[in-house]
Simulated scan of single mutants.
Amino acid sequence: MRKNKKLTATQSQIYNYIVANKEQVITITLRELAQILHVAPASVVRTLTALGYKHYYELQSQIREELSRNKVVDDITYQAQYYFSANFLPDYEEKIEQFKQFARETKDFIFFGIGTSGDLCDYGARQFVNNGRNAFAIGDPYYPIELSRDSYQNKTVIVLSVSGEGQPTIDQVKHFREQGAKIVSITNDEDNTIANLSDLNFSYHLEFKIIDRTINLTTQVPVVYLLERLSRALAG
């Protein structure tokens, strides 16, 4: 599906529901979709217009095509193909230039994440070190940031979070901000608490894959790609 980065909160809600329920969307009418979401049909129409669709059936047609392709390849390959073909990739270029500005004023890079995101923080920190910068990772959700005697004015914190809504991560981001650090976040969507607390956010807009309510299997291919892009930018 196409994605416009300038959706309203209601439009983002509609978009996220469609992405997570594609097989249902191709079987129901626009009015039925509006009823499920408790919004006016006009809200759905405006969302489709913002996404670049002229008609609801155009959206359904594209979803059928995507689902058909998904039957041919495994899910990870499909997600990766979709990500690298999406039209929001060019938007990264401007943000990477902003990141370079942060890097010029940064003495230390701190990577912060919990769980799988924490494992990727270790990878990201090593990539930054490989490119000649001082970097380390923190995976402790209760790390006493506020007790540090050193200023964070010259530090940039790179936060990894799929949902952007984990409360321990949110709390730590607030502590980093209070200590003067710049915040760069990588999240699945840009409409979340951590993204809104960030000075710069990179989002990748793929389907959430959650099992047993707590186990997040959302692909991390975009995160690895972004970490490597940012690490390479340090040499620029």
Rank of each mutant, 00 (worst) to 15 (best):
Met1Glu: 08
Lys6Gly: 02
Leu7Arg: 05
Thr8Gln: 03
Thr10Arg: 03
Ser12Pro: 03
Asn16Trp: 03
Ile18Val: 08
Ile18Gln: 01
Val19Ala: 06
Glu23Ala: 10
Gln24Glu: 11
Gln24Tyr: 07
Ile26Leu: 06
Ile26Arg: 06
Ile28Pro: 04
Thr29Leu: 06
Thr29Val: 08
Thr29Met: 06
Ala34Thr: 06
Ala34Trp: 02
Ala34Gln: 02
Leu37Met: 03
Val44Met: 02
Ala50Trp: 06
Ala50Met: 10
His55Pro: 00
His55Met: 08
Tyr56Trp: 00
Tyr56Met: 00
Glu58Cys: 12
Ser61Phe: 05
Glu65Leu: 11
Glu66Leu: 07
Ser68Tyr: 10
Ser68Gly: 08
Asn70Val: 07
Asp74Gly: 09
Asp74Met: 04
Asp75Val: 10
Asp75Cys: 04
Phe84Val: 14
Ser85Gln: 12
Ala86Met: 15
Asp91Pro: 12
Asp91Gly: 15
Tyr92Ile: 11
Glu94Ser: 13
Glu94Gly: 08
Glu94His: 10
Lys95Ala: 08
Glu97Asn: 15
Gln98Pro: 00
Phe99His: 05
Lys100Arg: 14
Gln101Pro: 02
Glu105Met: 04
Lys107His: 01
Lys107Met: 01
Asp108Ile: 11
Asp108Cys: 05
Ile110Pro: 04
Phe111Glu: 00
Phe111Asp: 00
Phe112Asn: 02
Gly113Phe: 00
Ile114Leu: 03
Thr116Cys: 07
Thr116Trp: 06
Asp122Glu: 12
Ala125Cys: 10
Asn130Ile: 08
Arg133Ser: 01
Asn134Leu: 10
Asn134Ser: 10
Ile138Trp: 00
Ile138Gln: 01
Gly139Asn: 04
Pro141Ala: 07
Tyr143His: 11
Pro144His: 12
Glu146Gln: 11
Ser148Trp: 05
Ser148Asn: 13
Arg149Ala: 15
Asp150Gly: 12
Ser161Leu: 05
Glu165Leu: 02
Gln167Leu: 07
Thr169Leu: 03
Thr169Pro: 02
Ile170Tyr: 09
His175Ser: 14
Arg177Cys: 03
Glu178Arg: 14
Gln179Ala: 12
Lys182His: 12
Lys182Asn: 09
Asn192Gln: 11
Ser198Arg: 15
Ser198Thr: 11
Leu200Ser: 08
Phe202Lys: 09
Tyr204Val: 10
Leu206Glu: 10
Ile210His: 11
Arg213Tyr: 11
Arg213Val: 05
Thr214Leu: 13
Thr214Ile: 13
Ile215Asn: 14
Thr219Met: 09
Thr219Phe: 14
Pro222Ser: 14
Arg229Tyr: 09
Arg232Leu: 15
Ala233Asp: 09
Ala235Asn: 14
Ala235Gln: 14
